[in-house]
Amino acid sequence: MSEKPSDAEILKGLADIVEEVAGVATDDVTTEKSFVDDLDIDSLSMVEIAVQAEDKFGVKIPDDELANLKTVGDAVNYIAKNV
């Protein structure tokens, strides 16, 4: 991306990825949701989401960082900070 995306754009992009990887409706992907507890996404799907987010936003999300991204909001913030 040439310009830094807004948080809303990151959230939308992330929601599209979560829908494709885990079949969760995009409307359910909101910032306060926990990937594991609310969206029922397992550790391997989290890797797939991270890989796609890396491609989409041009960020690096190493596996040890991935463990800290508990909620959708955590992921949005991480991407916003590192893009």
Binding site: L44, M46, V47, D63
Partner: peptide
């Protein structure tokens, strides 16, 4: 390391 191997193998 499950997640790392998964990432490597799937990419």
């Amino acid at each position: 390391e499950g997640q790392s191997v998964f990432r490597w193998a799937t990419t």
